[in-house]
Design a protein around this nucleic acid. Structure first.
Lengths: 209, 209
DNA sequence: AAGTTCGGCAAACAACTGTTTACTGAATGA
DNA sequence: TCATTCAGTAAACAGTTGTTTGCCGAACTT
């Protein structure tokens, strides 16, 4: 994809990028629902009318941001699931990856966390659908682990959802911690690790539903 | 409290109530950050200027709504913690209470879920502080249960936070399910129960950190 | 009964909003 | 080389916004 070579296409992509970046930047302390077309174009250095050459709506820009944000998340999840090793190392690794991901994609993560329950339905649904797909992916990976021998489809799914929800909560917590107290960040990582250990303990003793 | 008997005070309270209700109603499909003073007063049947007799800001109205919303949540949590009985019945009861609470306080719950990571700092902080207090309360209640014998303060706290986060996730899920598919609602309740069972299993086998 | 308090109102302010219009000029392709 | 495409522009549109002003009249106080 993205093999649009013409000079014109390239320039258009550049403007589109500028709009997305401007939006992402403004959404650092604002909701998508309260964002304005003029506001975005001003920040992007374009005229208001130019916006409509790229998106019909601000909601459409929001959906584009969702796709972007989740692409990087997808990469992150896979990098955790691909790991092998004991439960302990896996937990440590997972928490580390989340922490780093939040640090390196602060704007994207904040956007997801803010708009997951935000005021724009289209965006909310896009995020939820994608999180559901993550849960499915996690569930499939869990099924391959020896610990899951004999688990029903339903139990695997509920465990996967528990992990995904926990990941989301932890990421949100990191988000707030990182731009405040650096010590609080360590505390959050430690708590997340303990919680994952407790879940993993419950998993080992699960007898099926 | 609220023993302000004068006719004047009563009328003022009535207007204030109208503003809060109007805000809550409008926030059903909108963010606090995108709410307007005129919008609220129009919905409440007052003139725009009247707003400033009650709140300096829309953020202030938001904080007032946080207090309201969390008061009812507080009652709910206590009603779960006060229960006695085996782990299984406790879990069933907790999920039922959450489900009913969301049904009966839809607007409040949606407001909390939406503004927890929303664009208004004051409100965000108010919600987070209160959720922290909930976790402390849950932790104190957990400490009294026999299963927690020998648990460190830190482990109790991390378990309490896990429960609170899980409650928040479940409530959000109910919120979306209830205004869509009624069958999906049953599925969410079932999943939440399984997850709580798994956590409770991990808890029983916990050896300390 | 007279004076004070104060919640609510209409009106005005400048500033901003989303969207459409007709246009320009560079990249494109024949 | 010449016609076409099309991303971007400035200008205009009618609405809306937050907030302040001076005023009214009912509820309070003495």
């Amino acid at each position: 994809m993205s093999h649009t070579v013409g000079v014109r296409q390239a320039q258009k992509q550049q403007s589109r990028r500028a709009l997305l970046d401007a939006g992402l930047h403004l959404l650092a302390d604002q909701n998508l629902a309260s964002l304005g077309v003029r506001e975005v174009t001003r920040e992007a250095g374009l005229s208001p009318a130019a916006f409509y050459r790229h998106f019909p709506d601000l909601a459409a820009l929001g959906v584009a941001l969702v796709e972007e944000s989740l692409a990087s998340l997808h990469v992150m999840i896979r990098s955790v699931l691909a790991e092998a090793g004991g439960a302990e190392e896996l937990i440590d690794r997972a928490v580390d990856v989340i922490e780093r991901h939040v640090r390196e994609h602060r704007a994207h993560v904040r956007f997801l966390s803010r708009e997951r329950h935000g005021g724009v339905r289209q965006v909310r649904e896009a995020i939820d659908a994608e999180l559901g797909r993550f849960a499915a992916e996690v569930g499939a990976a869990l099924a391959l682990q020896p610990v899951s021998r004999g688990w029903s489809e339903r139990d695997l799914r509920m465990l996967a959802e528990l992990y995904v929800d926990h990941m989301v909560s932890t990421a949100s917590a990191f988000l707030e911690a990182q731009e405040a107290d650096p010590a609080r960040e360590r505390r959050i990582a430690a708590t997340a690790r303990l919680q994952l250990r407790l879940i993993s303990l419950g998993r080992r003793h699960w007898q099926g539903s």
